[in-house]
Design a protein around this nucleic acid. Structure first.
Lengths: 348, 348
DNA sequence: CTGAAAGCGCTTACAG
DNA sequence: CTGAAAGCGCTTACAG
């Protein structure tokens, strides 16, 4: 359009927005006082406070975050760092649920969320300087697989970070927030047994993730507790994808045709399992009861709707944010485990 | 842990990261020269350039973005603004595909993406000052419904913004990037007709969204072109959700039991339609051919896999980012329409 | 091609 | 409780 206009100027001819100096002038105080009001109004007379607030409203003043950051040495933002092959997480409904929760929780603290993906080695290299330079004050880290290099890198940067789910294979203390996977699995298996099922199989998550490991452990523990021998023929290892759920179920149906229930470690896989069962001409829950895990959006969309274990995503997000803020304020790492809840629908 | 430590300090005792002054000292030049190198090295001797680059590497210097922002009057970041009821978009696979694409495209320009949700009026009020204060340099706006107040608000702020999909009901020029919905719909209907189907129904998207409107228009146009009378009994209006696809299909099956094909305006709805068809005891594609739209991840996971129209999400993201950067550099608004592609699988 | 210097808009000891 | 002032780390005319 306007070819002659200069480029690379932010607001070429718009008048500058009001600064703290304008506010000070309007309120009849110094800019130090305005700043103090901005910081919470400690040690400021109520008369001054009111005058400043009035001026702020009148001028529509909003703090310049860059200027503030420069002096406070804080970025004033937090990263949501996805250190997984992108496909996996962007297709997993749990991920979006978590992202949404964190965005909301951070918004309440006026902290913008910066979304960073680091699924590949190249991406990790690219964001390293960004993190090292503390362009964010902390990191919400989503990375489930064992030995993720991001954990080490973050530790070296000295940036506060909180993981979603227990990071596997870390010797030192790392902050994380997780649902009680083991108890969740136990609750589901207990429910299946108490509804009269005898041969309960399981489809697990990947065995290099905490959810994969602990949900299997819960399954095994509950069987043992009830005096049932753990039978590896009743165990199929999936990768959380719908397709793997289908394949695993098909396998179980062949290797152990007498099963009457299956605990599936994710709803997405459970949906796949449903497909395999249906294809085999069996009915759910009449012939085989199916229990999922997550209570993700798919759980109520399957046929039949899934009986599943609800992960407390809202609370997980909140606690991740809370822990991160605490660490930014100097607290040490902490572990938070949140209870799950059995949601009974029609599949079991 | 360390109770006696002062709080609210960013890096209490870590040594400060190197500044441009350290680099200048190491390179034996002034800080103005370092800055010029950082800006691209124009008007700097190659000797100086090399010395500066060496110093940067040696010290691990990374620019302080806050300081830069303060002087350039640019935020150095871009917002991805979701102005829809959250549930909808966070469950729609298209959304995550778009978000992923934009994150990647922005990363290539070293621009952090700030994720902002503004699905409710309260949220919109909350982020208004953030936007007005130009805490981001531009906005990638995702908002499909007619008359979204965010468009007006953004226009008032003077912030550059680019919409994903045509914003309905806007009189003035607004930048947007969209797939060619109409042509995509035409291609699908053409394909169905040419595979020998005669009674082609459609399940549309919401009629206050461009995709809802234009895909229906494409359907209608192609029928007319082939001399087929447009029959409203063959049209059911959905809302892009899986559930609505199922309900619409059920309705069509009742009101027009002789249909032998259906063009569904989203893969998610098509998946729902598949369920309804199956429940009615009909086979796909033998009895009814089903064509979807999106080629989202669900398309290959349905039974049978969906023949659908691929939306060029990677290109859409790239173009949105490119347009936004152009606007930030002073260019005027522009409209970009990208072609779609027919993907033939098994459902039609 | 280069340096010295002003200035971006804040916060925070420091005096009073 | 309040003001004056230093300083956060950059960029960019301005001279030379």
């Amino acid at each position: 359009m306007t070819d002659t206009e200069p480029r690379r100027r932010a607001r070429p001819r718009g008048k500058r927005p009001p600064t703290i100096l304008d506010v000070a002038a309007h309120a009849g105080v110094s800019r130090g006082t305005v700043s103090r009001v901005l910081q919470g109004g400690h040690n400021v007379s109520s008369a001054s406070q009111e005058a400043v607030h009035a001026a702020i409203r009148k001028l529509g003043y909003v703090v310049n975050r860059a200027a503030r950051s420069l002096v406070t040495q804080r970025a004033g933002s937090v990263a949501f760092l996805l250190s997984e092959p992108q496909e996996r997480f962007f297709e997993d409904p749990n991920f979006t649920t978590l992202l949404r929760g964190c965005t909301t929780a951070l918004a309440e603290h006026d902290l913008p969320l910066i979304l960073i993906t680091a699924g590949t080695e190249a991406e990790r290299r690219r964001i390293a300087p960004f993190l090292s330079a503390h362009h964010v004050d902390g990191v919400l880290l989503v990375s489930s697989h064992r030995g993720n290099p991001m954990v080490d890198h973050l530790r070296r940067t000295g940036l506060p970070f909180v993981c979603c789910g227990k990071p596997l294979g870390e010797r030192d203390a790392v902050s994380y927030v997780a649902a009680n996977d083991r108890e969740g699995a136990r609750a589901m298996v207990r429910y299946l047994l108490e509804s009269g099922r005898n041969r309960v199989a399981t489809i697990t998550g990947p065995q290099d993730t905490p959810g994969g490991l602990e949900r299997l452990d819960g399954y095994r523990g509950m069987l043992t507790e009830r005096g049932i021998v753990y039978d590896t023929r009743l165990v199929a290892v999936g990768d959380y994808s719908r397709a793997s759920g289908e394949a695993c179920m098909q396998q179980l149906l062949t290797s152990a045709p007498d099963i009457d229930a299956v605990f599936v470690a994710s709803d997405l896989m459970a949906d796949g399992a449903l497909t395999a069962i249906e294809r085999a001409g069996l009915r759910v829950p009449d012939d085989i009861a199916v229990g999922g895990f997550d209570d993700s959006p798919v759980a109520s969309a399957t046929h039949p709707p899934l009986t599943t274990i609800r992960q407390p995503w809202a609370r997980i997000s909140e606690m991740m944010v809370r822990q991160l803020l605490a660490q930014i304020d100097g607290e040490g790492p902490a572990t938070v485990i949140l209870p799950t809840e059995l949601v009974v629908r029609e599949s079991a």
